Computed example of a mutant assay.
Amino acid sequence: MSVTQQYLLDIHRARQLGEPAPPAPGTHDRQVVRAWRDRRRFHAVLAGRPVRGRVRRALRRRWPLPPRA
């Protein structure tokens, strides 16, 4: 069953029971990603790690840039 089919089934059930309809899929995606990012940053600060640029720094260690001419 796809997400859309499940959503339509949930709307149908909510109408039959007289309950409010559930939010559409993807409605709160930005809020979830922002909360996840903030939580990661908070835990990085508590652990004493740098908050920004960790992925880029790790990639640079793995594959250093060639010297410029």
Rank of each mutant, 00 (worst) to 15 (best):
V3S: 04
T4F: 00
Y7W: 02
L9S: 00
D10Y: 07
I11K: 06
I11W: 10
I11A: 09
H12R: 01
H12A: 15
R13D: 08
R15N: 13
R15V: 12
Q16T: 14
G18C: 05
G18I: 04
G18Q: 05
E19H: 14
P22T: 12
P22H: 09
P22W: 12
P25C: 04
T27V: 04
D29A: 07
D29V: 12
D29T: 03
R30P: 08
Q31D: 05
Q31A: 08
V32H: 03
R34H: 04
A35M: 08
A35V: 05
A35D: 11
W36N: 12
W36A: 13
R37M: 06
R40G: 08
H43D: 06
H43F: 03
A44L: 06
V45N: 04
G48C: 15
R49A: 01
V51W: 00
V51A: 10
V51R: 09
G53Q: 06
R54F: 06
R54W: 11
R54P: 10
R54H: 08
V55Q: 14
V55E: 11
R56M: 03
R56T: 04
R57L: 07
R57H: 04
A58M: 13
A58V: 10
R61F: 13
W63F: 10
P64R: 00
P66I: 00
P66E: 01
P66W: 00
P67V: 09
P67F: 02
P67T: 01
P67K: 03
